[in-house]
């Protein structure tokens, strides 16, 4: 074997191996290390005195962690469902051959191009009683108008939902619209000839046939929920108190703010398990669809 043919036949594999090593080291390595740390009593610096699942059981008796989990469910369900519902609705409107579709598409998609940090800050100003919606309405003469969700522990979490939906609705719309554009014109003709009302056509024929598209969008949006950090930091800072805390913020606070890395690692590992639990059914469905 000449060195030339050796090189040409093995180079791709060697490049791939290198790449996989990098991924394995930095990604899975960090993962394993976090897992190990979560079993220790590390505080400011990693130490390796193992305490088993103590950090985990401490998590489950910590109010703030429970609150952040409940918040994640509230935020997650509302964010995904409302984004998808509005996104599908807007996509259907745009699909009805509206004039100036390109302009509307750009308008609705624009928030998605804005970073979550900017989104959070912008909505913070809007929600801020002293200069936002409340101040404007009072300026119009509605003296008793009150809109102070940011400082209301019961409602702060919904400000996150509103800002998040504003940010992502265009993304959901564009993905669904791409799917709608793939529907053949014959199918629409069949729906009209059969006398099927438009809304039933969408609800019972078109949207069900787009389920892989919808499922992909849902998974992507759901991953936003678990990662949500920048939005919380800029909009509510987890407050008032920790009323709008989310798990990611919880973990970062304990890593860096409170120097409790064993505890924070346990929270991170639980977050990862959540992601896995969410993705497995999706991949399983994909896998089964492919086998057919």
């Amino acid at each position: 074997m000449t060195s030339g043919s050796f090189r040409s036949s093995y180079r791709p594999a060697r490049v791939a191996v290198l790449f996989f090593l990098v991924v394995a080291l930095f990604f899975y390595g960090s993962l394993v290390w976090t897992g190990v740390i979560s079993m220790t009593s590390s505080k400011l610096l990693p130490v390796y005195n193992f305490v088993g699942f103590d950090q985990y059981s401490r998590l489950w008796s910590t109010d703030r962690w429970i609150v952040s989990l409940v918040n994640m469910v509230i935020f997650g369900v509302l964010y995904v469902v409302v984004s998808m519902a509005l996104g599908i609705f807007l996509a259907i409107l745009l699909d009805r051959n509206v004039r100036g579709e390109g302009v509307f598409r750009a308008i609705f998609l624009y928030p998605f191009a804005v970073s979550l940090v900017v989104t959070g800050l912008a909505w913070r100003w809007i929600f801020e009683p002293a200069q936002g919606v409340q101040a404007i309405m009072r300026g119009f003469g509605f003296e008793s108008f009150a809109f102070d969700w940011l400082s209301d522990p019961e409602r702060a979490i919904y400000t996150l939902v509103i800002a998040g939906v504003w940010h992502s609705v265009g993304f959901a719309m564009i993905i669904v619209l791409a799917g709608l554009r793939g529907i053949g014109s014959d199918l629409w003709k069949a729906i009209r000839v059969e006398g099927i009302p438009l809304w039933r056509g969408y609800l019972q024929i078109i949207l069900p046939s787009l389920w892989p598209v919808v499922a992909s969008a849902v998974v992507l949006l759901a991953s936003d929920v678990i990662r949500a950090y920048d939005l919380v930091i800029t909009l509510t800072k987890g407050g008032p108190g920790f009323a709008s805390d989310l798990p990611a913020k919880f973990a970062v606070d304990h890593f860096f703010g409170r120097a409790n890395i064993g505890f924070a690692s346990a929270a991170s590992i639980l977050m990862m398990l959540l992601v896995v639990a969410m993705l497995v059914p999706y991949f399983w469905a994909e896998y089964r669809a492919q086998k057919k």
């Binding site: 199918l187 003709k189 069949a190 019972q204 069900p208």
Partner: peptide, 8 residues
């Protein structure tokens, strides 16, 4: 293209 309703 037959235009059958794909999920039914």
């Amino acid at each position: 293209s037959y235009a059958l309703f794909p999920t039914m």
